[in-house]
Amino acid sequence: MGLIYEGFLKAIEMLLSGDREIYEITLTTLRVCLSAILVSTIIGIPLGVLIGLHSFPGKKIILIFVNIGMGLPPVVAGLYITMLLWRSGPLGHLGLLYTTHAIIMAQIVVSLPIIIGLTSAAFQQIDSKMLMQIKALGATKLQRLVILLKETKLAILAAIIAGLGRVLAEVGAAMMVGGNIRGDTRILTTSMVMEVSKGNFDVAIALSFILMTLAFIITFLLTSLQQRKRRV
């Protein structure tokens, strides 16, 4: 228990002393995770809406793959992205391996299915009578979409929160495709793994406090957005 207390003190000390490296790692983590979740949201919600609202042949197959993707182990994503980005691989000429872009790619791969899956589930649950009614009242396509998005706000924000949780927690793929390079691709989770293997438990615990604080703040913001009282 003393170790946790020490780690807590260390976290405060590192933050207050303006340890440049800690700030850099925290900023990189934020930048990588938010970029990934932003891309996943921008692509995932429209796709989820499309899949949820329309019925078409092959829909079930697509949903099966989306649902499998929700449980895709990050190291699997990491392995395939590594092979894709190898110098000898198909995208090798881009020189993306061991960059933050590679980590963002991996995180999109693991968070996109969650957002698509949860969004489409929400849209599938919409009462078909309501859909008819909206149509009958003469709403344009855009108006219809806006009403439905309002209706599913809770579920969509839940999807984003779930995706974000996955991205923030992810370590296996980030280690593989990012390489945990100091001052470059080192993020909070990968540096925790490294500090533990160096035997610096106090630093690792300090990093865990920073990571949990970040997760708390972001989730808090999103949850308050989600739980805001509906105004008529």
Partner: peptide, 17 residues
């Protein structure tokens, strides 16, 4: 209103990034 807020939230994220 809610859509606006959502856009606002996204913008905040963007600025952070």
């Amino acid at each position: 209103m809610k859509i606006n807020r959502k856009i606002f939230a996204l913008m905040t994220l963007f600025i952070l990034i």
